[in-house]
Nucleic acid binder design. Structure first.
Length: 302
DNA sequence: AACGCGGGGGG
DNA sequence: CCCCCAGCGTT
């Protein structure tokens, strides 16, 4: 992102806006736990809030602590994940719970390096858990914050396709010095990006920092990276086929015979490749047939 | 640095 | 129909 001096009032204005407009989300409630925050962050890694909220409530009711999730049958975990997408995240979340039990006595750590060492926890989630679960200062830089800073400070429609060192410097310089101030800025800047400074149709008329936004001042120019953006294909991809197989096994009451799996997708080679990859990922268990002339069955792993 | 990985809602 | 979305792990 092109660097420009940030408006010194930016942080205070966005935080004041957040105090007024923050959504009432269960993982922000006063009785939230660090574990609840961590679960919400993993679910929200690639899934919108509206779909996460009911799944989060059911999940926290079933497994209120890391020890509870660590002890659960993996099949139950994958069913509770339901259609949140990227089910490998559910697997990693259970591995994460087991690591928290094994390494940290069942308590979510507040140390950045300890968080980063947990399965499924990367730089964003480690920073978010520190800020939202423990109120500690950290640089929370997700796609929403990147977009807010690209516009208000950088004057661009959208951030670069991948995170740059310049963006990290700009974001770091903006984070308030205190734990509480930094945590509030993190939540506020993400919320502004989610509710107002959205990717497609930003609501600049309702934006608290419109008067100091470099992008708005420049007349909302188009995205200079647009030509290089490529969207992920979906129809006919392995991801779609894997999704269908997982949906079939989630809904099944018992082991599913091969011929039933064969119904979910017409291309046999692609189907076989996807089943194999799901088995390799630990998302599907293959059971050998009782006799050599019978067919194998499949289920969610125990 | 690039790629694979789900699924659904909104414009 | 197209595009985006509170990223991570592997290569």
């Amino acid at each position: 992102m092109p660097t420009a001096p940030a408006d010194p009032a930016l942080v205070g204005t966005v935080v004041a806006w957040f105090d007024e407009h923050a959504r009432d989300l269960p993982w922000r409630a006063p009785d939230r736990t660090p574990w609840g925050v961590l679960v919400s962050e993993v679910m929200l890694q690639q899934t919108p809030v509206v779909r996460v909220e009911p799944a989060w409530r059911a999940w926290m009711s079933a497994w209120p602590t890391p020890a509870d999730l660590a002890a659960a049958p993996t099949a139950d975990v994958l069913r509770a994940w339901d259609r949140l997408g990227y089910p490998r995240r559910a697997l990693r979340l259970q591995e994460c719970a087991r690591a928290i039990v094994a390494r940290h006595g069942g308590e979510v750590p507040d140390d950045e390096d300890a968080l980063l060492a947990l399965p499924g926890i990367g730089s964003y989630t480690a920073a978010a858990v520190r800020a939202f679960a423990f109120g500690r200062r950290s640089v929370v830089l997700d796609t929403n914050v990147r977009r807010v800073l690209a516009r208000t400070v950088g004057g661009s429609a959208l951030p670069a396709p991948s995170l740059t060192a310049a963006e990290v410097r700009t974001a770091s310089a903006l984070v308030p010095a205190t734990d509480d101030g930094a945590a509030r800025w993190a939540a506020a800047s993400m919320e502004l990006g989610a509710l107002v400074c959205t990717a497609r149709a930003p609501r600049c008329e309702s934006c608290p920092v419109a008067s100091s936004c470099a992008w708005l001042a420049a007349g909302r120019p188009g995205d200079e990276h647009h030509a290089r953006r490529r969207t992920q294909a979906w129809a006919g991809t392995d991801r779609q086929v894997r999704g269908r197989i997982m949906a079939l096994l989630r809904e099944a009451l018992g082991p599913v015979p091969q011929h039933a799996v064969d119904q979910v997708w017409p291309d046999a080679a692609q189907r076989a490749r996807c089943v194999d990859s799901l088995v390799a990922d630990g998302l599907v268990a293959r059971h050998d047939p009782p006799s050599p002339d019978a067919e194998p069955t499949y289920s969610l792993p125990r």
